[in-house]
C-alpha cells in the first residue's frame, strides 16, 4: 500500500528538508521501517529497540493515534496519511 509519512521539523535534517515521504507497506511498522531504511539515523530517533517506539514519539494514521488502533501493527490502506508527531504540552 502506498502511503505518505509526514515528517516533523526535528526530523527533517535527516530527510534533507523533505516533509512528506512516500513508502509502501502493509502496516505502520513496515512503513516506518522503510522510512528508516531510506534515511540514515532515522531508526535511532524513532525506535528505542526493534518493535518499541521512543517514549516521546506519537504516530497517527489519518487522525487516530495508533495506540487506540493496533499500535505498530495497525494496517494501512492506499492513500493513508501517517504522521510522526512529537509529544507536546498544554492546557
Amino acid at each position: 500500500m502506498a502511503v505518505k509519512i509526514r515528517i516533523p521539523t526535528p526530523l527533517r535534517q535527516l530527510t534533507k528538508g523533505v516533509d512528506l515521504v512516500e513508502v509502501s507497506a502493509g502496516n505502520v511498522e513496515g512503513a516506518l521501517q522503510q522510512l528508516c531504511a531510506k534515511y540514515a539515523g532515522m531508526d535511532k530517533r524513532l525506535f528505542k529497540q526493534p518493535g518499541e517506539l521512543n517514549r516521546f514519539v506519537n504516530i497517527y494514521v489519518n487522525d487516530e493515534d495508533i495506540r487506540f488502533l493496533e499500535n505498530l501493527r495497525t494496517p494501512i490502506q492506499d492513500g493513508d496519511d501517517v504522521s510522526i508527531v512529537p509529544a507536546i504540552a498544554g492546557g
Binding site: 526535528p10 526530523l11 535534517q13 535511532k44 530517533r45 521512543n54 517514549r55 516521546f56 514519539v57 512529537p86 509529544a87 507536546i88 504540552a89
Partner: peptide, 11 residues
C-alpha cells in the same frame, strides 16, 4: 524556539 531534542525526541 525548539522544544524537542533532534537526537531522541525528548523534551
Amino acid at each position: 524556539g525548539v522544544h524537542v531534542c533532534e537526537l531522541c525526541f525528548g523534551p
